[in-house]
Nucleic acid binder design. Structure first.
Length: 731
RNA sequence: GGGCGGUUAGCUCAGUGGUAGAGCGUUUCAUUGACAUUGAAAAGGUCACAGGUUCAAUCCCUGUACCGCCCACCA
């Protein structure tokens, strides 16, 4: 006897039970699928890593969209009989997590991390990260994500640390990681360096001052930051600029508001003749561009600002003052001395640290870098006997990390969807500078370098006393870059690595194309001589009804858990899929989710109707299908084929819509209605034929709907096929 | 400054070289029926604008306008 079905589908009650039954079945893991014949031993593989959510809090709608998309791909692959694995994990997100905990501690206890000390502070961060991790895992489950929990990883756990150390050593040995004193992006608020990609620009109004250093200096310069001029060692002009040609090569000793400066006039093509006075005061210590110019011209470097964005030069009136205050003082002195020629209000882009909001202060610092332009032989870093598998980088040839990133996509081994992002990706590579990978924060992988006097050991702490570990930690993206293979056991030569790498798809938001996707390609190319994945599928950002980015602080964020509680995970998933073309931002409203909740009810009730008309006992005798019924079955095949093609093409929005439309407006509205009378008043053979048709169409539809709305389809399926799981039924 | 995307029904968005599609909303009708979280029907669009290619353009090309995003050292 079948169980009764209520007229309402109660997602809240059933979903957690269904998830548990899936998990208990073990079918999220490929081994179990092979063991039970769901997938053949030598079946094609489908592997995907979950972009690990940061352990900084809770999941938002962007995560929900990501989980929905990936779960559709994964469930589809599994039902198709592929050996399917989806690896979950979380990201320690070094700076993001540390700054979050720091600000919480400061709010509550008015203490900073130095008050607590490294050990105690890390204990606190780890506690926070672990709580956050549990919340996230729970949310991933609520979404119905069929990830293989037996393979869960954390970017900061032991196996991943081993991978990081190995990767670092390989790159160091290849000469790609070096330590250098360069001008970098310093975040005075977070007290750490950040990479170019972690700097965002905010437009603000600024004063643009034009003045001379001193009355006896021949050239006027312009700047928005007069206080940095205390660190000037040159003035640069364009070589073709007739106004200044006569001065090039000359050197001047000037008195700049009480501070002596030695200024050389240099010619450099980087200077724009038409901007400002056409002459640029060169501050090698406090501008990355000026620093590069200083390198070219062998100019001395003079630091006048410290790590707290306070002045270290300029005499007693200025020293120790914040840069903004110093700016005012100097401007006033210039006015008083009659040297100020012009002051204008201009819009200016200032650089801000993405995570902390601190205003970036370029400073010269000794840091670790990854060289993206240095040539090396790929084979030297690969395991013995292995050669480059990257198209366009022949075995044994010299290459660079930039080239690896470029060729991996150019050679067609990685397809980026939507395609337009390929060009954006190339453009980013062209402009890439060496990657600053050391951070002065405490939470993260420690730089695996130990020193003892002049001696240095990389990758491993040597035996013996007196070795000092590098104080810094690694950029979080260094470990994320290893994610597709560090999760599969690398640097060990595991079966997982051999079976599932390169992964099939990498699905993530287009906003981390550079941060993450590019770095994975870099790391994988260098360490494995291969690509990390075949297809990159980029989804858009989830925005609110007005198109604004959802954020907690704006109060416009829709909480996925709240929506799941209210309308069910299936409805939430569908609302994030349909109408969301790849790479395009989408607007989400509660109304939309509610609409799809109605669809889950429709599935439930249509199934209930079919079940209610199930013949009692076995159908005896033969029956033929009517012409209409044959037509329905043929139409179904077409619809199914369309859904399939759309999924194969990563057009999930179209696949979802097709499935939705077929079920509601063809199966329920047309076919059920047409068969109703037969079921009620037809002859026994007609009844049997009608039921048979409906059940076939229903169960078939449940299959192609399953990846999109896994819970309700599973719930219904088990009414018809008790003891079976739709999760692993043949597509 | 460079690049990219968008402009399609009241709203949110798909889509296609050959009489324009969905969801929501609106209007009318139906209904003790699997489902009111319903069904049937209807209204509603010179597919931003201007040129061009074509037998045929909403779709391809060029340009313009507005909106949005990304990148960039204009000090």
């Amino acid at each position: 006897m079948e169980e009764e079905m209520d007229s309402r589908y109660s997602a809240g009650e059933l979903e957690p039970k269904i998830y548990e039954s899936w998990q208990k079945s073990g079918y999220f893991a490929p081994e179990k699928c092979v063991k039970d014949g769901v997938a053949k031993k030598d079946a094609e593989t489908f592997s995907i890593v979950l972009p690990p959510p940061n352990v900084t809090g809770v999941l938002h709608m962007g995560h929900a969209a990501m989980l929905a998309i990936e779960d559709i791909l994964v469930r589809y692959a599994r039902m198709k009989g592929k050996r399917t694995v989806w690896i979950p994990g979380t990201d320690h997100a070094a700076i993001a997590t540390q700054s979050k905990v720091e600000s919480e501690i400061y709010k509550k206890e008015k203490k900073n991390r130095h008050d607590l000390g490294r050990e105690e502070f890390l204990r606190r961060v780890e506690k926070f990260a672990s709580e956050s991790h549990d919340t996230i895992v729970n949310q991933i489950k609520r979404m119905g994500a069929s990830v293989d929990w037996t393979r869960e990883a954390f970017t900061l756990d032991e196996p991943r640390n081993a991978a990081v150390k190995t990767a670092f050593k390989e790159m160091y040995d290849a000469g790609l990681i070096y330590r250098g004193n360069k001008v970098i992006n310093w975040d005075p608020k977070g007290q750490t360096t950040v990479s170019d990609d972690e700097v965002v620009h905010e437009e603000r109004k600024a004063k643009f001052y034009t003045f001379k250093y001193s009355p006896d200096f021949p050239i006027s310069i312009s700047t928005t930051r007069p206080e940095t001029k205390l660190g000037d060692t040159a003035v640069a002009v364009h070589p073709d600029d007739v106004r200044y040609k006569q001065y090039v090569g000359k050197e001047y000793d000037v008195d700049f508001v009480g501070t002596p400066l030695h200024i050389k006039i240099i010619a450099d093509t980087e200077v724009d003749k038409d901007f400002g006075t056409g002459a640029l005061g060169v501050t090698p210590a406090h501008s990355i561009i000026d620093w590069e110019m200083a390198e070219r011209h062998k100019l001395p470097l003079k630091q006048v600002i410290n790590e707290y964005a306070k002045m270290t030069a300029g005499g007693p009136e200025i020293e120790g003052k914040k840069t903004a205050e110093a700016r005012e003082i100097i401007a006033e002195k210039l006015r008083a001395a009659g040297l100020m020629e012009k002051e204008e209000e201009v819009p200016q882009n200032i650089s801000v640290a993405e995570r902390t909001g601190g205003i970036i202060e370029p400073l010269p610092k000794l840091q670790w870098f990854v060289s993206v332009n240095k040539k090396f032989k790929l084979e030297n870093s690969l395991p013995a006997g292995q050669a480059s598998k990257i198209n366009g980088i022949p075995a044994g040839s010299e290459t660079t990390l930039k080239e690896i990133m470029k060729k991996s996509v150019e050679g067609g081994q990685i397809k980026i969807l939507p395609e337009r992002f390929e060009r954006i990706y190339y453009h980013w590579i062209e402009n890439l500078r060496d990657w600053n990978i050391s951070r002065q924060i405490w939470y993260g992988h420690r730089i695996p370098v130990w020193t003892k006097g002049e001696k240095m050991s990389v990758g491993k702490k040597p035996f013996g006393f007196g070795w000092v570990e590098d104080e810094d930690t690694l950029d979080t993206w260094f470990s994320s870059g290893l994610w597709t293979f560090s999760t599969l056991g690398w640097p060990k030569n595991t079966a997982d690595l051999a079976t599932f790498h390169p992964t099939t798809v990498l699905e993530t938001g287009y906003d981390i194309l550079f941060f993450w996707v590019a770095r994975m390609i870099l790391m994988t190319g260098f360490l494995l001589g291969d690509v990390p994945f075949r297809t990159v599928y980029l989804h858009g950002l989830v925005r609110d009804e007005k198109g604004k980015k959802m954020s907690k602080s704006l109060g416009n964020a829709i909480d996925p858990l709240e929506m799941i509680d209210k309308y069910g995970a299936d409805a939430t998933r569908l609302s994030l899929i349909i109408g969301a073309a790849p790479g395009n931002d989408m607007k989400l409203s509660e109304d939309k989710i509610r609409g799809y909740r109605n669809f889950t009810t429709k599935i439930w009730n249509a199934s209930r109707f079919v079940l209610m008309n199930r013949p009692v006992g076995a159908v005896s005798g033969k029956f033929d299908l009517s012409d209409d019924e044959k037509k329905y079955l043929a139409e179904f095949e077409t619809a199914k084929k369309e859904v399939e093609t759309h999924i194969d093409n990563f057009e999930l929005h179209l696949a979802g819509e097709k499935a939705y439309h077929y079920f509601w407006h063809t199966f329920a509205d047309v076919i059920i209605e047409a068969e109703k009378n037969k079921l009620k008043e037809g002859a026994p053979e007609e009844k049997a034929a009608a039921y048979e048709t409906l059940e076939t169409l229903l169960l078939g539809s449940l299959k192609f709907l399953h990846p999109f709305v896994p819970y309700v389809t599973e719930a219904v399926y088990q009414k018809f096929r008790p003891g079976k799981l739709l999760l692993v039924e043949k597509w």
